[in-house]
């Protein structure tokens, strides 16, 4: 694509040649190779090698050690807890994402852009602070600490706290992907259905939902990856009780800090596989619906104006 200017330049070749004293096309080609080499080297050092390290370290002590680490009862407890937390947090944020996107894209009201900013807020908050906020409310010295203790309800250092922290950090994911999709589709379909006598629920179920299904899946996929992998926020509220409040990332940390590297990387490799599956799913959905690609967010801001 960079060739055309060079071709143009060759028409007044004598002047151009004497000025530049070399073949400009060759310069362009070398520049291109150099840039591709820089990009590949940077990506290798920061993306590919780390990923490769996870799998080689996981298998460093052989397949037997790998299987033992992955099938350890404590690892299983962590896997089950991670799946359970995601099974609660993702649907909660899925419902919120659909409902908030409906409000934002189907109606005009004052303060809409403030509402969008507030939904994005959890992205600007350190995960550690997200965990801290729930300690301040539900912890022993928190606002409801005394009440919860008196009624023997455990939220912090127990599963409910982990779920809350996970919901917080994955809060904007579904809404953020759905809003641009629903904005692009407008509300003509819904209005037509309504004028034909459908009720609100029928419109949502038979008109809106089929229209947004790929965007919805996309949001759920990203939300789920973060929910299963969250570390900072969960670390603050979990209390690290083995077999009870240890999620997979926390289990990786414990094994690692015990210098049990092969086992730590074995459990980590399961999470890395999840990441690769997420990327594959993401690419598939972007292929199904190209608007989902990275440009969507900028375009969304644009259409709000």
């Amino acid at each position: 694509m960079m060739e055309s200017p060079t071709v143009l330049r060759d028409y007044n070749a004598p002047a151009a040649r004497s000025l530049r004293e070399r073949d400009p096309a060759r310069g362009v080609r070398w520049g291109r190779f150099a840039l591709i080499a820089v990009a590949l080297t940077f990506m290798a050092a920061f993306l590919f090698l780390p990923l490769l390290v996870v799998f080689t370290q996981a298998l460093a002590k052989g397949a037997g050690a790998y299987l033992a680490a992955v099938s350890d009862p404590m690892a299983w407890a962590a896997i089950k807890l991670t799946l359970m937390v995601a099974a609660i947090a993702v649907p909660m944020n899925l419902v919120f994402g659909v409902v908030s996107a409906w409000t934002i894209t189907k109606f005009q009201f004052r303060g809409k852009s403030t509402l969008i900013t507030l939904i994005d807020l959890p992205f600007a908050v350190s995960p550690v602070i997200a965990g801290l906020t729930y300690i301040l409310i539900f912890g022993a010295h928190g606002w409801f600490g005394a009440y919860l203790q008196a009624h023997d309800i455990r939220i912090v250092f127990a599963v409910p706290g982990i779920v809350l922290a996970t919901i917080f950090v994955t809060f904007p994911f579904v809404a953020r992907e759905l809003i641009p999709v629903m904005q692009a589709q407008g509300k003509d379909d819904e209005e037509t259905a309504l004028s034909l006598g459908a009720n609100g629920w029928q419109v949502f179920w038979h008109v809106t939902l089929p229209n947004i299904r790929w965007g919805l899946l996309y949001g759920v996929l990203l939300c789920n990856a973060r929910a299963m992998g969250e570390f900072g926020a969960v670390s603050v509220v979990s209390g690290h009780i083995r077999g009870l409040t240890n999620t997979m990332p926390l289990h990786v940390e414990i094994l690692y800090n015990e210098y049990n590297y092969a086992a730590a990387f074995a459990v980590a490799s399961l999470l890395a596989l999840l990441a690769l599956l997420t990327l594959a799913g993401k690419s598939f959905l972007e292929w199904r619906q190209p608007e989902l690609r990275h440009g969507a967010r900028l375009k969304r801001r644009n259409s709000e104006k």
């Binding site: 990923l51 370290q57 997979m248 990332p249 999470l271 990441a275």
Partner: peptide, 29 residues
């Protein structure tokens, strides 16, 4: 390569942490 750019979004941070440590530790690759 384009798909791999999103790896840091998808890879749990704890996994990234131990992988980078193993890679950049004095005895790492």
């Amino acid at each position: 390569l384009d798909a791999m750019v999103d790896l840091p979004f998808a890879l749990p941070t704890a996994v990234a942490g131990i992988a980078l440590t193993a890679l950049y530790a004095p005895n790492g690759w």
